[in-house]
């Protein structure tokens, strides 16, 4: 991961932290998908965060999805299953 990517993630993480200092589910999930897994699907972390917050507004079970994504440990096949189980379409 290059320095610019680390810097951008710190910046966005700082902004996505709630008042109590707890990180949001979206922030943790995007750190995993964009940061740890380094998936090309996400052009930047902001895009991931915006998509995640939009999903949350549309009844996705983001907390469960985050747990599922973290457990998947960058197994792309498993991460797709997490979306199918907890994402927007699963909760429509």
């Amino acid at each position: 991961m290059n320095l610019w990517k680390i810097g951008a993630m710190i910046l966005l993480s700082a902004c996505a932290t709630s008042g109590s200092g707890e990180k949001s589910d979206c922030d943790e999930m995007c750190n995993e998908l964009y940061g740890a897994c380094d998936y090309a699907a996400f052009p930047d972390k902001l895009s991931c965060m915006e998509g995640c917050l939009f999903a949350e507004e549309n009844n996705a079970d983001v907390e469960s999805q985050k747990e599922c994504v973290l457990e998947a440990a960058c197994d792309t096949f498993a991460i797709i299953e997490c979306e199918n189980t907890y994402g927007v379409e699963a909760n429509e």
Partner: peptide, 26 residues
């Protein structure tokens, strides 16, 4: 300064329907 401004209380990431240009990620 940038960090401080970025994280000021009036700055918040909003959810939106993303529309990724495929050429941006390939």
């Amino acid at each position: 300064a940038v960090l401080s401004m970025a994280c000021a209380s009036d700055y918040e990431i909003k959810g939106r329907e993303v529309n990724v240009d495929p050429g941006q990620v390939t």
